[in-house]
Structures are given as C-alpha cells and as structure tokens.
Write a protein that binds this DNA or RNA. Structure first.
Length: 497
RNA sequence: GUCCCCAUCGUCCAGAGGCCCAGGACGCGGCCCUUUCAAGGCCGAAACACGGGUUCGAAUCCCGUUGGGGACGCCA
C-alpha cells in the first residue's frame, strides 16, 4: 500500500460546532502536513447535513482556529473550488440521487419502519440479551406489501443492504482491519426526510471531490466498513485510510470540555504561540523518528509521514505544551514578539506609542531580556509591566523579605545619590557602582542587590538586576530607589500597597 | 453485551529478532553557573502489563489473559 501515489487530495471535514477543539485541530494538522509535504490539496468541507446550521457564522470559530494555526486550505467554503459547494447542506441533491441509484441497482431498499417501531423492537431485543441489529423486515417485503405501504403514504427511509461476507481495508496506521459483515446491520443512508446520513454524505463527497487519503480520528474505524461497502456498491476504488489515535485527557478519557481548555483559540488567549501548538500537536501521536523535538512548521512539513503515526491513544500533556511554547518564544525574534504582544500591552494600558519610533530598540531589548524566562506571551506582558508602566506594584512578600530592614534605607539613599551622579548609566558601571557602595558601607552586595531589585520592579525575581536598571534608565531607577528607601523606613508603606 | 483499536518510564515518543541489563523529551530530584528567577550544562530516579509459545536468541513474531480506548442512532 503505497502511501503516496501522485498528488494527494485530503480533507478536513468538521461539523460546525462553533469552535475547533484540540483533537480536531490535530486531525486537521495531520491532513494539512500530509498535503503540503506531497504538494497535494487540502480541502475544508463542512459536514452540516443534520442541520439548518449551515451559515458561515457557525463555522467561523473553526475557520479562525485553523487560520490561527496557520493551516490554509486550497478548496473550501469561503474560497470555493472545482467541487463546490463545500457545505454538505448545499449538496443534498447529490446524496439523494446516489441513494436512489443504489435502490435502483439493488444495493439498497426502502424501509417503512418508523422510529418508534424500531425503538420498540430494539428494546425488546435488549431483554432477550441478543444484540440488536435491524431485522431486515422491509427488505423482505413483497411487491404487494410495498404497494400497499406506498398507497398509505408511509414515510420511507433508504437502507443499504449489507451483503454477506467479510469486509476489510488496509489502514495506513493500523494495517489490515477486517470486519465480519454479520456484525453490520443494514444501515440507513437516506432518512425519511430525504436527508442523508453521515455514511452516505462522506462517501459521496469524498468520491466527487476525488479525495485520495482519508485521514481522520480512530473513532471512525468502525464506520469504515460501511463506507467501504458503499464504495464497492458504487464500483469505485477505495481511497487510502489512515485512522489516527485520539487525544485523551489526564484521566484517559476522550478529551472534552471538562478537561479544561479544549478550543485551540483558548490557547491563543492563554498566551500560546501557534507554532508551539502545532509543534506540540504534531508530536502527539507522531514522531519523525529522530531525537529532535522542536520544529517550526516548515520543518514539520518536510519530515511528515503518515507512517510515523503511532497506533495508541495519546494523553494531552499541558506541561510539555508549556515547554514547547517556551522553546518557541526563545526562538522568536523580539520584533515579532513585540508585534504579537502589542494588543495585550495596549489593552493593559502599557503601550507607549514611543516604542514605534525612538523607543523601538529599547522595547526590543526589554523583550530580549525577558524572553528566556517566559513560558507564555502573557508572562511577557506581566513581567514587562514595571518596565512599560510608570507605577510599580509592590509584592508584599518581596518587600517584607528584602526591604523590611529599616537600616537599608540609608544604603538605598547612598546608592541613589551615586546612581544620580555616575557618568555612564550602563550595566557594567552600575554593577561596579553598587558593589562599591556596598563595600564602602560595610554591607554585602547581595542584600543590597535584592533590595534594589524590589525597589526597581516591586518584585523579587527578574533578569540580571544590572541589565534591568540600565534598561529602566537612570531617572526611574533613582526615583524608585527613593520610594524604596521610604518604604524601608516605614514612611511610605501605607500608600504604596 | 457485541465488534474494532491499542498496550515501552507518571506523560509523549524511539525501538520494525541479536546494536537494548531499552534511547530521547516533558515533568521530578541533585549539582554547576549565579545577585534572584528562568535559560543553559552535567548527573540521577523512573518502563518493555501478565502467561504461554516460535527461535540459538524476543520489547520486537504468534496465541491467550488482563487493562485502557472507541464504535454499536433515520448524530457526525
């Protein structure tokens, strides 16, 4: 089973639920990576046969999610394509025509059993303990019985007539999978309201859209034999199937809302980079076969192969996602980071239009300094606050441990005076000055450094203090040192917290 | 219940009969660096579910058990 023939055509076919969840995102990603890797076509198709919910609004969440991840499609509802429309709800006539043809050719038949009657029989079989399967009642109807039912105008659905025997298909991730058709019932392909069921619509669309590889979730394995039967009845060669394992929550249950964030867009708002999300998702169930793990999207495209997909389900590991995010932030150019956090900085009232001009390089240097310790973009906004804002918010614990000693006040005053008068306010000189002041006053440098950090930023952790002060600038440093001295004395405590 | 899929460290993966007393990564512990916190470097604890085969040899092949997951709709 050759994985790739010529130019593969794959599709991502979500139901319009309003948002793209993590599992769907990974399925879409695998399809996209495969298409891009082999210069094929990635199709976006909306499976909304069930509903009147076929508006573009309903798919907006999914589309936004895909766009955020950078997964672009070559054919789809918004851009059209040679097989438009890409909303199943707009293709109903095709499914009906196909269902009618299957009846005509003897592969399907009308079923007049009502939903209620079916339920009754199903429930009855439950008590006997025998697994329920449609009893084929309508398949065995005589011509006169059918004629009679037709005259009463009874609603009729169309069922596919499952032949005896065995059905198999060669799955690209699982190998050959066989099903005894005795376990398959005559499934409905067209409801009594003439709307298709999933089995019919996927097959019809995949055939018409010339999909060559069906890459979808594991949960579809048991649907596949029914679809294989449909392909065979239609006399059409099977596409390749690749069923990818599901993503599970920490409790090993299928990932769902109760596991927290499941919409990819939520991750955007939590400060994750799309390239990190893509990287993480790609390696959840797939491996390039090497020890490397951090890849940008282009590298992923280059290495992707369906053969590298593993067969078992994967548990979503948020800590590892965080790590990937940190790795990608560290690799991102500061200018790009600035561009991405601008909205957040603006929203937090921390954006100074200055940074578009003369302050630009200063902004980039601040980001450069903060970058290595950020796991999320939101960390950058948070840790950047004392740099961008004017007011300092003092962490009470930091103040208590590092500015709690009133004896510190005079040292801070001395340091402030020296900072105010030293010539070049740059990191090496700042460090030399501080150490000198400490030495002159007979105190260790460490406590003074810690106190100065709290003075400058209001918190006990930060990048190297001397770099921090240089970027903060002499003016703010001196001013904040003054405030800190008053806090140490106990004067200013009341209005600063 | 029936059918199907899966089974290597807590988690994600590598391993396609000897290279494996099992390798990488996250997380965890320790050390180094150091003004704090990260980053980085080094070290460490941590797994082939179980039982039978096959074979000179099995994490790798076969069977069974157990465990986990999925599907059993006129949902997709």
């Amino acid at each position: 089973m050759a994985e790739v023939t010529t130019r593969p055509r794959v599709r991502f076919a979500p139901s319009p639920t309003g948002y793209l969840h993590v599992g769907g995102a990974r399925t879409a990603l695998f399809n996209w990576l495969f298409a891009r890797r082999h210069h094929g076509v990635f199709i976006l198709r909306i499976e909304d046969t069930d509903a009147d919910r076929s508006s573009w609004d309903m798919v907006a969440g999914i589309v936004d999610g895909l766009r955020w991840l950078g997964l672009d499609w070559d054919e789809g509802p918004d851009i059209g394509g040679p097989h438009a429309p890409y909303f199943q709800s707009q293709r109903l006539d095709r499914y009906r025509a196909m269902a009618d043809r299957l009846v005509r050719e003897g592969h399907a038949y009308y079923c007049y059993c009502s939903a209620e009657a079916l339920k009754e029989r199903r429930d009855a079989s439950q008590t006997t303990g025998i697994a329920w399967k449609y009893d084929r009642r309508c398949c065995e109807l005589g011509a006169d019985q059918i004629a009679e039912l037709e005259t009463t105008g009874a609603p009729r659905a169309i069922r596919f007539k499952v032949p005896e025997g065995t059905t198999y298909f060669d799955d690209l991730v699982h190998g050959r999978i066989e099903f005894d058709r005795a376990n398959l019932e005559d499934f409905v392909i067209l409801r009594s309201d003439r709307h298709p069921t999933y089995h019919l619509s996927v097959v019809v669309d995949d055939v018409e859209m010339q999909v060559t590889h069906i890459v979808r979730g594991d949960d579809h394995i048991s649907n596949t034999p029914k679809q294989v039967l449909l392909y065979e009845a239609l006399g059409i060669d099977l596409p390749h199937f690749a069923h990818v394992p599901l993503i599970l929550g920490p409790d090993r249950k299928r990932l769902s809302k109760r596991h927290g964030a499941t919409s990819v867009l939520e991750y955007k708002h939590l400060g994750y980079l799309p390239e990190a999300m893509v990287n993480f998702l790609a390696l959840l169930g797939w491996s390039p076969g090497t020890d490397l793990e951090v890849f940008d999207t282009a590298e992923l495209v280059e290495q992707f192969s369906l053969a590298g997909i593993s067969g078992g389900n994967a548990v979503f590991n948020p800590e590892k996602l965080d790590w990937f995010n940190a790795q990608h932030i560290a690799r991102l150019a500061s200018g790009e980071i600035a561009r991405r956090i601008e909205p957040e900085l603006r929203a937090a009232g921390l954006w100074n239009d200055d940074v578009l001009g003369s302050g630009r390089s200063w902004l980039l240097r601040v980001i450069e300094l903060l970058k290595p310790r950020a796991r999320k973009l939101t960390d950058l906004v948070e840790s950047g606050r004392p740099f961008f804002g004017h007011a300092v918010t003092y962490d009470p614990d930091a103040v208590a441990t590092h500015l709690g000693d009133p004896g510190l006040a005079s040292h801070l005053d001395a340091l402030r005076d020296r900072f105010a008068t030293m010539t070049e306010f740059a990191a090496p000189a700042i460090e030399a000055t501080l150490r000198k002041v400490a030495e002159e006053r007979g105190v260790k440098a460490a406590p003074l450094i810690h106190a100065t950090r709290v003075a400058a930023l209001g918190r006990a952790v930060s990048p190297s203090l001397f770099d921090v002060l240089e970027l903060l600038g002499r003016e703010k440093t001196v001013q904040r040192l003054g405030v800190a001295a008053r806090i140490a004395r106990g004067d200013a405590a009341g209005d600063r917290f």
